[in-house]
Design a protein around this nucleic acid. Structure first.
Lengths: 161, 161
DNA sequence: CATGAAACACGGTTCTC
DNA sequence: GAGAACCGTGTTTCATG
């Protein structure tokens, strides 16, 4: 079900180019790939319908918005039952500081990527929104020194050209 | 320097809407915010020039590309010196399995978000690309059960409307 | 290739300081 | 009176059948 869509080299090249700049026009895309613009449009529509392309996101600089400090919070939720973790997840997702949230294997159940103003703001966030809630058994905070984006996402075995 | 740009309510609303769908036209944007389309264009250009908007990214579904398993790898690099960590970072960024890479505080220096085919593929990745390299002192692998995106990124104090 | 729409540049106008 | 912000229009480029 996951890989129900067949991706030929043209699709792969389109995905690779659009990951560099999602605003590339179909005209430029067509010129780079070597097909007609209408074909490009068809391919992208098909990739969107097929769920390969989930959407177009804006990449923002949190520091430019006054959130100069980023951190990862490892959170243990105990007891780890559905009626507790559902509300926990929704509450964390709604926090203005939250960037993304993961449910993981291992001793720490959740990992939260947050962007805050400074260390004092981080302390406030951890105390008021995490450790003060009774379902939160433990929080471990790690600051992010630096982060990097990686190469384009491609299927296994696709040459990175 | 980070917050040199003043963001009024119109800018904030534009950022909020564009985070929902980065392909919203200036016309629709203008109608939603209540200003002229040309003004919208001016605002977005200013946000791009000011570095608030870093770019436009494509959101893809790794599972639909045949990478159905995601994991986080915590990596200790020892000794933690510049001449070792520079090449390590570049090597990890170039792996087709890597999605993002963080340099963190705490006992584990790096966190790598990877997308692989299955558990066997993950084992191969950890053994061949991490533990077999002499600068890698320790790797801890955690699988990702589920992940969530969070609300739009806004400056602290901005009402989430 | 043709049509309709969107992006973009420009000039006019108003409001504020 | 000077500056900035906003708005409407005209031209070019693009999406789409």
């Amino acid at each position: 079900m996951a890989d129900s869509l067949t991706l030929d080299p043209v699709d792969l090249e389109i995905l690779r180019l659009l990951q560099n700049d999602a605003r590339t026009t179909y005209r430029d895309l067509a010129a780079a790939v070597g097909v007609a613009p209408s074909t490009c449009l068809d391919r992208v529509s098909r990739l969107r319908r097929g769920g390969v392309i989930l959407g177009h996101a804006l990449r923002l600089d949190p520091a430019k918005l006054g959130r100069s400090l980023e951190a990862l919070l490892s959170v243990q939720v105990r007891p780890h039952r559905r009626e507790l973790i559902g509300p926990f997840v929704e509450r964390v997702r709604a926090l203005p500081e939250s960037l993304s949230l993961f449910h993981l294997t291992g001793p720490d159940d959740y990992l939260v990527h947050v962007a805050v103003v400074d260390a004092a703001d981080l302390q406030r966030l951890v105390l008021d929104e995490f450790t003060s809630h009774k379902e939160v058994a433990r929080v471990e905070t790690r600051l992010i020194f630096q982060q990097w984006s990686c190469g384009p996402l491609l299927p296994p075995g696709a040459a990175a050209t």
